[in-house]
Each structure stands twice: as C-alpha cells, then as structure tokens.
Design a protein around this nucleic acid. Structure first.
Lengths: 150, 150
DNA sequence: GTGAATTTAATGTATATACATACAAATGTA
DNA sequence: TACATTTGTATGTATATACATTAAATTCAC
C-alpha cells in the first residue's frame, strides 16, 4: 500500500500536520475495513465486539449503559442501541438495576463469553499482521498517538 | 487527554500491536469529533469537505464519480450519494458526460470554491492545534503510518 | 416534604459506512 | 451484427455516528 500520496492520488500536502490528519483518517479506514472482514462471519460489528470486551473486563460485575459509553472508543456512539442489538443476539443480559430504577445492569452472557473466546486468537493475529511494524516501532507509534492528543 | 489507558479506562493491553489498533480507533474518534465541530457551522460534513477538495484539485477538469471514489479516504464510502448531497447544496455541478453516457461529469461550483476558501485557514489552524507534536514528531508519525499499512 | 435541577436511558432524525444488487451503456468476441 | 461481459452509477438495506429531545427516577435546595 505504501505512501498516502499514492493511495489517494494526492501529489502533496500543505504541511506535515495536514498530512497527518489525512493519514490518520485513511489509516482508520484501512483498519476498520480489515476488522469488518474479520468479524463478518461471526455476525458482529467491531463496535459490538468492543462492547462485549468492555463487559468481559468487568468480570461479572453488572455495568450500566453510561459506564459502557465512558469506556467506548467513540464517546458519541450510542451504547443504548448497541446493547439492544447484543441483547437480541443473546450475547448479553440486560435487566433493571434494583437500587436505581433509571439504570440498567448489563452483563455479558455465556454465549457472549464463548464468542469472545472464539474470536480472541483471530483478533490478536489480525492485529499483528495488519501492522507492518517492528515492536519498537509500534511502541513509538503508540507514544506519538498518546502525545498527539495532548 | 494523555494515555489511551486512562481515556478508555482500560488498565493494560495484551501487546503493543493490540494497543495500537485501539489507539488508532480512539485517535480517529478524537479527530473527527473536532472536525465535525469545525464544519458544523458551515452545514457540511468532513466527508463532504473532502469531496470538495478532491474536486478543486482537478482544477476545473470534470471528474467522474468513480474517480472521486478512488481518491476518497474511505474507499467503501458512497461517492454517488455524497455528490447528490453537495449538488443539492449548490456546491458542485453534475451533468451527463457527452462521450460516455454512463458517466457523470462533476465540477466544483463557484459557491463550492468560495466555501473552501472560507474554510481553508480554519482547517489549517485546526489541524495544527489538534496535533500536539513538534514538526519532527509529526513527520515520524506520518512515516510510521505509511509503513504500518505495508 | 415539595418542587427544581440533575442524571440515566431511550428515542428521533440526519448523515455516513458497508455491502449487495440493479440497470443502462459501452466494450469485447464470435 | 448479435450477444455476453464489463463498467459506471444509482439504489436498497443494515449498521453506526452525531446530536437533540424526551421521559422517568433520583437528588438537591429550601
């Protein structure tokens, strides 16, 4: 694939900051395209996978919708609707919180845990192979991204 | 904002590759949230802005929908519908191609050019301020992203 | 304790992505 | 030329994002 200039047929950028924004947007598209392909056979989207991982990270402790939202990669997403989709698929259990009736308690189901187990190795392998960098370079990338957001 | 671990309240990652994927997804969300806010007063989306820039880059030469698609950051997007939206707003002109009636010729309108001129400085400034890196570091980031995609 | 303010979740609407499919026009081939 | 294939664009449907609004439950102030 190589340089962004070839990929989107743009000769040059105004400055490296401008290029970085475009490069990040394009790289995101590269990532999610591959992720979609990975998850498609399991009838799940990358966002739904992420919610399931958040729930598993709670180790069985019920989580509210707003807490899921907080931990999501996209803060503007709509945890409420994603939870509804996952419930329909039987991948999580949602019930009214007894101590605060505004909230709902969400827990990953056995079926959800099994799906995560099935996907785990594939996701890990995919993450490694789609990033063509040495371990030292990936660490650099992570540091730059963390610093970049200020 | 700082480290991704704090931002999404995840204690640790399996390996730096895994972290990089999450970090890229999260950074993308950070970027587009700020871009949306920038473009909103002009009643335009980041994707629509990108299409207008592609058209301006043609310097008045008519462009087909598939050529726009090729140059877009997201290859799976739907140039046809974006062009339709921009036409409704009067930001571009779309007409049947005389030599090949399957194709449509798309050219940016004067109104579209004016909008780009109005936005130009703001976008450039925004791109600089939302990336908290030195020029040397941004170049590094660009190189890593280019290399990462293989 | 009552009413205002806040919190939590759900819903409504517009936009965009992802992918399949349809259809017309152009091209290639026998 | 006739017909199959390919190309260019549009459309249909499901999912997700972005953001405003609603409604119910809780908390706070008095």
């Amino acid at each position: 694939m190589g340089k962004i200039e070839d990929a989107i047929r743009q000769r040059e950028f105004k400055d490296p900051y401008n290029k970085a924004v475009v490069n990040l947007l394009f790289t995101h598209s590269y990532l999610v395209t591959l992720q979609n392909a990975l998850f498609k056979p399991y009838d799940i989207s990358p966002e739904q996978y992420n919610v399931l991982r958040i729930l598993r990270g709670q180790n069985g402790v019920p989580t509210t919708v707003s807490s899921i939202q907080d931990r999501m990669l996209n803060k503007m997403s709509n945890a409420s609707r994603l939870v509804e989709k996952l419930k329909t698929k039987g991948l999580l259990i949602r019930e009214e919180c007894p101590t605060d009736r505004r909230q709902v308690d969400v827990v990953i189901s056995e079926k959800g845990l099994n799906l995560l187990r099935e996907l785990e190795g594939k996701v890990e392998e995919s993450n490694r192979t789609l990033i063509h960098l040495t371990e030292e370079e990936v660490r650099q990338l992570n540091d730059l991204l963390d610093k970049m957001r200020g």
